[in-house]
Design a protein around this nucleic acid. Structure first.
Length: 211
DNA sequence: TAGGCCATCTGGTCCT
DNA sequence: AGGACCAGATGGCCTA
């Protein structure tokens, strides 16, 4: 994409005007011309024009790279906006860059503290004791610590204070309701919300998307 | 119309 | 040497 021609803020006329007015560009030109051997008088005009053209081409190339870099940055910023809460909906104005970054920071802090709180809660309730009601030692080998504990929480309570997120965490960790050695998971969570969990598990990404 | 936000250009610096 | 990154300058667009 050549935004020199596509951009509504076309830069070409601006560039020429700036080149004329901008002393620094002139200094840069002088700098570039330094170190070159003095051409014969007849060649001065053409070589200077060549240098100007070279300089212009270099400038265009550098500008283009910088533009691309900023576009990539903006694309990443859009990606961040997409995963931010409160930023969706047609009536919501697009978050500014600074707002996006500040909101993202707060969001991460909020999630971190929520996670800590959840861990603490689970620890307070069950401590480190071996939990009653867990049906199989095989289960212990296959289920990660957090979901393992959740398996023994009375089902209705699980949904009430942990909601769908718990389901996500659970089956993201264990790989869906069929994680129990190919059989349907006997844990209370899976039995309480089998349809929801299987749907949730199937929509989870297999791995973190990378570039 | 002022102020916020943004895209672009530019020169300097650092890195490979 | 060339590219990436950064920050300052500038000007356009939009909204209150």
């Amino acid at each position: 994409m050549d935004s020199d021609s596509q951009s509504s803020r076309s830069s070409s006329p601006e560039l020429e005007r700036k080149d004329i007015l901008n002393m620094k560009s002139g200094q840069m030109f002088q700098k570039l011309c330094q170190g070159q051997r003095m051409p014969s008088r007849g060649k001065i005009r053409s070589s200077r024009r060549d240098s100007e053209e070279d300089l212009h081409e270099i400038r265009l190339k550098v500008n283009s790279r910088e533009r691309q870099r900023m576009h990539d940055l903006n694309q990443a910023m859009d990606g961040l906006r997409e995963v931010m809460p409160y930023s969706h909906g047609p009536s919501v104005r697009k978050l500014s860059k600074i707002s996006t970054l500040l909101l993202a920071r707060n969001y991460i802090l909020m999630l971190s503290s929520s996670l800590e709180e959840m861990k603490k809660l689970v620890n307070d309730v069950y401590g480190s004791q071996r939990l009653p009601g867990c049906v199989s030692s095989l289960h212990h080998q296959h289920v990660a610590p957090l979901p393992h504990v959740l398996c023994n929480i009375p089902s209705p309570d699980v949904s009430s204070y942990m909601g769908v997120m718990t389901s996500d965490v659970h089956h993201k960790t264990v790989g869906g309701p069929h994680h129990f050695s190919g059989l349907f998971c006997p844990c209370a969570l899976c039995q309480q919300f089998p349809h929801q969990l299987s749907r949730t598990a199937s929509t989870l990404p297999a791995s973190t998307p990378g570039k």
